[in-house]
Structure formats: C-alpha cells, structure tokens
Design a protein around this nucleic acid. Structure first.
Lengths: 155, 155
DNA sequence: CTATATGCAAATCGTTTGCACCTTA
DNA sequence: TAAGGTGCAAACGATTTGCATATAG
C-alpha cells in the first residue's frame, strides 16, 4: 500500500545516516521488506533473499532486522508460539487481525481506533474471538529513573 | 480486583466439569492464579507453589496452565523476548500497559476502548511510546473450512 | 482399580552470539 | 585499511514432551 520506492529510500537513508554500510545482501533484504505483503517471518525473508544470494545466512537477516527495529524502520510482531513477523511496509504500530486457523495476518484500515473490533470484523470478515491491545511505554518510576540517569536532559 | 473466592470457585468448577482431578498441587496453582496481581510468569507461579510443595516441577505448572488456557480460565500474555505472563484474576482479554523499562504490566481501566492511549497514559502515568492492538479470530476462509469440517454444525 | 497427574530429564525451535574471514567506504 | 558485515556453528532459554511412578475418584 506504500510506494515501494519510498520505503526503500527511507530505510536506505536511515542506514546511511547511521553510518551503516549498504551491502548487496542488506540491500536485498531491504527490498524484500519494502514490498512486504503478508508480514513475512525472518525465515521467509531469508528464503527470498537466498534466491539471489545462496550463501546468505539466517543470522544476517536477524542482524539486519535488529538494526531496522531500533531505527523504527520495521515493525516486529512478536509471538511466543510461532516465529515473529515483520512489516517493513508500514513500520508504525497498527492493528492486526490474526487468524487462529491459518495464521494469516491482515491489516484492518481503522482511521480512528474508536470503531475497534466490530469495524475490524466487518472489514475483514473475521470472526473475532479475542483481542490483544498492549501499550508500550515507560512507567512513572522508569521515567524518573531515566531522567535522573541522563542528567535531566530529556530524551 | 476480583473476590478471590469467586475466581477460585470458577476455575475449580470448570475443572471438575471437565473431569479433571483436583490434586493438592493443582489447587495451590489455582490459588496463586486466583489472587494473581502483577501478571506472574510460569516461573513465578512455580516458585510460589514450591513453598508448599518442594518437589513441584515447572512442567506441571505449564501443563495446568495449558488446561486453564483452553478453558478460558486464565489469560496468557505472549512475548517472544521474555517469558509469558498469566492473569487468572481477569481471564478476559483486556488492555495492558507494559513498561519498556522495568517490564511492569498494569491494567488501565478503560470502560470503553474509545479513549485509548491518551486515557491509558493519564491513568497510569505511563509515557506511551507504542502500542500493540491485535484481534484474534477466524478469517472468512477458515470459518468456511471449519463449518464444512463440522458438517454445518456451528461451533 | 484405572484413568489421570506428577516430575524428572531430554528434546524443541526461534533467536542470539562468538569468532574468523570478507568488504564497503 | 579500518570499521563494520557476513556466515558458520554453537549457545540460549522458555516451553513442550516422553515416560515411569504416584494418586484421585
């Protein structure tokens, strides 16, 4: 849903700015992520890149993903019972519909978050059975701790 | 926030109905879950129960949790980068605030889900940096597949 | 009595790490 | 050529599983 070139350029730009090198393998990983539909796993990304680089290792994929994660250039969907999924196409946090039958991951298009479950169900045809809504951030104690640690300089 | 006895009775009732046996170890696990504040991990549950049953194994905790999960009597919060957390006190899905600093898990009290991030932030004092909103259910294809498999009998 | 639970140890499996060898800039 | 990346293999760690023994009902 994103002009693929935009996302690729954004990722490349960030890496260059951070002083990272653009290797052929890395470029290929970025390309796969930039057009990622269906929230691929690290394994899937590896397989696709391996088409062009038979020696490519899974570890390299994970290492590149780690860099992009901290950069906010890729969204990681964590699971404990199956492999994590990645979205380089829409790296901002957004709601997902996850099928408990086949594992498919869809993006409901909720402009506001008000509508929520019923809207998501209507749009995707999902029969929603449960949901997961997590907020990630810093609790008051950690905010204070961090502020103190950085000598009152805001992040 | 729940009358502890209620939750304990609910879990016990379900287990009995399902033909499960109430062993002393299991009863102790249920008690820990029924009063669980702070979303304990399997490890934490094990440690607490081990106070009364020194021979108690972690595997037994996991096995009991598995039964309760399928019964909907305990809520599992899955993570890939750390151990899962469990809530036997409020087994229905509900939003959480997860501190990226110390890992604390709080329950914001959102009567409606409209308010969302800003309300959660105001209530808990969290500085919210990202969120996770997942809907779990069945996609249209799997609904059809399941309906066909069960001979048109609805679940 | 008999189906079920316990608890130990070993297996799983996605992910991470160490390290020697390459490559980009 | 120096900082950084690659890729192999080994390590990790939470969770699961197999199986012999114990026990609830």
């Amino acid at each position: 849903m994103n002009p693929p070139g935009d996302r690729l350029e954004a990722m490349l730009g960030w890496l260059r700015h951070a002083g990272c090198r653009i290797t052929p393998q890395r470029l290929e990983i970025l390309k796969v992520l930039a057009v990622s539909e269906g929230h691929p796993s690290a394994e899937t990304i590896h397989q696709r890149v391996a088409t062009h680089f038979p020696t490519m290792s899974l570890a390299t994929v994970y290492k590149t993903l780690a860099v992009l994660k901290t950069a906010g250039q890729v969204l990681e969907l964590e699971f404990s019972d199956r492999d994590n999924r990645y979205d380089g196409n829409r790296p901002e946090p957004h709601p997902h519909c996850i099928c408990q039958g086949c594992g498919a991951i869809l993006d409901p298009d909720l402009t506001s978050l008000d509508a929520l479950a019923s809207l998501a169900a209507r749009q995707t045809g999902f029969r929603i059975q449960s949901l997961r809504l997590d907020f990630y951030g810093l609790c008051p104690a950690c905010q204070a701790r961090r502020a103190a640690a950085s000598g009152n300089k805001p992040a």
